[in-house]
Design a protein around this nucleic acid. Structure first.
Lengths: 202, 202, 202, 202
DNA sequence: GATGAATGAGTCTTCATTCAT
DNA sequence: CATGAATGAAGACTCATTCAT
C-alpha cells in the first residue's frame, strides 16, 4: 500500500472514531484495531495522537477553502442579486458539511474539552466562517443591498450559529441523512428567515 | 465548614477549571489544589469525576428552569404582544448565560469529546431549549401571530444556534463581559433579525 | 511509612539495580518489584527515572563533601607533614568509596552511555576530585613541599585515574570487600608510588 | 559498493554516534540516516545492534594487539633499559588511543550502563591492559630492575587507571587534540611520576 | 469527616527487527 | 543485495480512586 493511501486509511478510521467516541475516548488501540494495522504504523505517519486530529482538521480547511474558491468562480458577481448570492453561500456550506457527517461532528461539536493546539485548530475554522460572513455583509452595505444600520459582528455570529447548528442537527449523525433536494429546501428556509431583516427591499 | 459549603466549594473550583482547561485536562489534583482540600475529600461529596461534571450541569438546569418559571410569572400572557414575548424570552436566556461565563463555556462548547453520560447531560440542555422554542412557535401559530408556513423545527434550530453562539461569543470569556445594557441591546438586535421573518404583520 | 523513609527505600533498591544491571537495563518495574511497592508510588517521590539517578548522585556528592569538610577539621594543618596529608586525603576517599560498593560502581563506571543531564551529573564528580587534587598540589608548591616543575594538571589526572580505578577494582563488587586494615595498606602503597615523584625530599 | 566497504561505513558512523550519544541513545535510525543507507541493510552485515558494538570493540582489540606485537619487534629486548622499555609501552598505548578519539571515548567510558555481553567486551580490554602491565612488572622483578616489594596487582591498577584517565582527559574529545610531540611529552611526565617508585636505582 | 500516601490499570510512544518487493 | 514499510513487544508515565490513620 502506498504511503498516501495508508495515511488516508488511518485518517478515515480516526475520523470515524473521533466523531463517535470523542477525541479522549478514542485510543490509538481503537484506531489500529479498526484499521487492522500495527500500533507502530500509526507513528510512521503521524507524530502523535494530536497530530492525527490536527491533520484531520487541516485537511478539512483545505477542502473548505478550495471549495469556496471553486464555487466562487462559477458565479458572475456582476449579475447575481444579493439574495441569490447569500443562498449560494449557504448552500455551499451546507453541502460541504453534509458531505462528511463525521467531520461535521468533529468540527462543530468539539471545542473546549480539547487542549492547546487542538482547540486552536478548531477555533480557526469558526473564526474564518465568521469573517467570511462579515466581509460579505460589508460588501453588501457598500453596494446598498444590505441595511446600513445592521450590527455586522452580531449578525455574523447569529448566522454562523444558526447555520452550524442546523448542519449539526441535520447532518451530524448518519441516520437522518439529507440529499441534494433537502439542502435546496433548507437553504431556501434559512434565507427566508434572514433575508427580510438583512436586505434592503427594492 | 458545613457539608453544603464544601460541596459548593468543590463545584466552583471544578467549574472554573473545566471551563478553562476542559474536562479531560482538568485533574482531580488541580481541583483539590485550587480548593485547598485533600484529595480524598472530593470523594466524600461526589461519586467520581463524572459526578462532579454532571452535578454542575444539573444545577445549571435547575437554575435555568427555575429562572424560566419565575420570569414567566412576571408577565401577563393575555396582554403581552408576541414580539415583546420573544424579546422577553431571549433576554432571559442571555441574562442567565451572561451571569456565569464558565458555565456558559462548559454548556455551550463541550459536546462530543465527552463520553457517555457526560455528553447526554449536555445534550439534554440543548434539546430543552430547542423544544421550548418549538412550543413557543406552535403557540404563536395557534394564536395567529406566527406565520403558518414556517418550518418550526428548522427555525427553532436556527434560533437556538444563533442565540447560543452569540452567548458564547460575547459571554464565553471574562474579558469582553457584558452588562445589563448590552444585553438589552443584543436582545433588540436579535429580535430585529428574526421577527420580520417569523411574525405576521398586523 | 514516612515520606523520607520511602524515598530512601526507593533510592536503595534503585541504587542496587543500577549498579548491577546498569541504568538502561533497570526498569521501573524492577525497582517496584524489589521494593514491593506500586508502580505509581515511585512517581510520587521522583519526577521520572532520570530523577532517581540524579538524586542518587547528588546525595553522593553531599556525603562526599560533608565527609571532606568533617575530615579536614580533624587535622592540624600547621603540624601535619605533606606526605601524611596526602595519605589522609587518599584514605578518606578510599573509605568513602569502599563504604558503598554500588554507588562506587555507578559513579566510577557510568559515563557516556548516559544521556544529557545524567552524564553531566556524573562528570561533575570527576571534575571536583580533579580540582581538589590540583589545589592540594598548588598549595604544596607554595609551601615548598611539592616539586616546582611538576605538571599539575596531568599529575592530577594520573592520581585521579589511579585512585578511582583502584577503588573500582577493589570495592566495585561485593565479593572482594575490603576492611579498614586493607584500606590502610592500600593507602600506604599508593603513597609509596606517588610520593617519591611529587614531594621534595628534605 | 563492496561488502567490506559497506560494513566499514556502518561501523564508522556507528562509532561516531556511540561516542557522542552513547550506546542507548544511538538509534539504528541515526546510523542509517548518517550513513545514508536503508534500515534493513544494517541487518545484512550485523546480527543486531549489539553486534555492531561488539564488532567495534573487537576490531579495536585486534588493532591494539597487532600494534603491540609490531612495536615489540622494533626493540631489542637485550639492550633496552627498563625505563626506556616502560616509556616505549606507555607511548604506544597513548598513540593508539590518541589515534581514534571516538573509540577512546567508547572503550574508556562505557562500562556499566551496558548490559551483558557489551559490558564483558569492554571489560576484556581493561583486563588485558592490566595483565600486560602485571607481566611487565614481573619480568622487571625477575631481572632485578623493579623493586621486589612492589604490590604488583595494585601498581598495575594504578598505572592502568592513570594511563587511561589521562588518555580520556586529553584525547577523549576532538577539541584538545594532541600531536606526536605532546605524546612524547606526556610519556616523559608519566614515566617521571612512576619510575622513581617502581624501578631500582643503579 | 478529612487526609494524602498508595495503588495499578490503562495509554501513549519508542525502536530494534523483519520481510515482501 | 538493498530497501523501507510494517511490526509489536516493551517501557515510561498518568491519574482516578481507595483506604488506613
Amino acid at each position: 500500500m502506498k504511503a498516501d493511501e495508508r495515511k488516508k486509511l488511518i485518517l478515515e478510521h480516526a475520523k470515524r472514531l473521533f466523531s463517535r467516541k470523542g477525541y479522549y475516548d478514542t485510543q490509538i488501540s481503537d484506531i489500529v484495531n479498526e484499521a487492522k494495522i500495527a500500533r507502530g504504523t500509526v507513528y510512521q505517519y503521524f507524530k502523535n495522537k494530536d497530530d492525527i486530529f490536527i491533520t484531520l482538521i487541516k485537511n478539512f480547511y483545505q477542502d473548505w477553502e478550495a471549495n469556496i474558491s471553486i464555487e466562487m468562480h462559477k458565479i458572475d458577481m456582476s449579475k447575481i442579486n444579493p439574495v441569490d448570492y447569500m443562498s449560494f453561500r449557504v448552500k455551499n456550506t451546507l453541502q460541504l458539511l453534509a458531505s462528511d457527517p463525521d467531520l461535521c461532528n468533529i468540527v462543530l461539536r468539539m471545542g473546549i474539552g480539547l487542549s492547546g493546539e487542538l482547540e486552536t485548530s478548531i477555533k480557526r475554522f469558526e473564526k474564518k466562517i465568521h469573517n467570511l460572513i462579515v466581509n460579505d455583509l460589508k460588501l453588501g452595505i457598500r453596494n446598498h443591498h444590505v441595511r446600513r444600520d445592521l450590527n455586522i459582528d452580531m449578525t455574523s455570529h447569529l448566522i454562523t450559529g444558526a447555520l452550524l447548528r442546523t448542519a449539526l442537527a441535520f447532518f451530524g449523525n448518519r441516520r437522518n441523512r439529507k440529499d441534494g433536494n433537502d439542502i435546496e429546501k433548507m437553504t431556501r428556509e434559512i434565507i427566508a428567515i434572514f433575508a427580510p431583516a438583512i436586505f434592503i427591499k427594492k
